[in-house]
């Protein structure tokens, strides 16, 4: 069981690294989603997998029976999923705002904050249709 999960984690990480090497920020974001799930699986698998032994304490007993599944990694993964969800939602909104404001999702063309040598930052990106959020909203309406 552990081997299967280990392979799955490997595949997920490989795929996400491939996605994250892209210049397209949206693809990068998809890679981030995949790799955060891979990290969650690492914690889950790291806590050892125990089949058919739920961590429940019998009525009247103080301690669970001898062998039960480890509940802690699941709590950790749950926390990580919640946090990761919030961060990715923010990142997605940011990429969308950046797209409407900058008119591109190509990270190579995002040079406003760090203009190339001898180039004015503000002059770089031509204001295409929907260059500002206001204009994008107007266009959408």
């Amino acid at each position: 069981m552990e081997q299967i999960l280990a392979l799955l984690i490997g595949v997920l990480v490989a795929a996400s690294v491939w996605l994250m090497l892209s210049r397209n920020v949206v693809r990068f974001l998809f890679g981030l989603v995949l790799i955060s799930n891979a990290a969650n699986l690492v914690i889950f698998t790291g806590g050892r997998l125990t089949l058919g032994a739920p961590p429940l304490i019998d009525e009247g007993a103080d301690a669970p029976p001898a062998l039960v599944a480890n509940a802690l990694p699941q709590a950790l993964v749950l926390t990580a999923i919640v946090i990761g969800f919030g961060l990715l939602a923010f990142a997605l909104a940011l990429v969308f705002r950046a797209y409407t404001a900058l008119g591109t999702v190509d990270s190579d063309e995002m040079r406003l904050a760090e203009p190339r040598e001898g180039e004015e930052g503000a002059a770089k990106l031509p204001a295409r249709g929907g260059a500002t959020p206001e204009m994008a909203r107007e266009a959408a309406e």
Binding site: V25, F28, L32, S36, V42, G46, L76, A113
Partner: peptide
């Protein structure tokens, strides 16, 4: 627009580092 441009780089690279941190925690655990 400058803030959004800088923000994209800040956010993406920091998220990668976070995930590496999380995987490290998982393995150490």
């Amino acid at each position: 627009r400058e803030q959004l441009d800088g923000g994209i780089k800040y956010v993406t690279l920091n998220l990668v580092s976070t995930i590496l941190f999380l995987s490290g925690i998982g393995l150490l655990y």
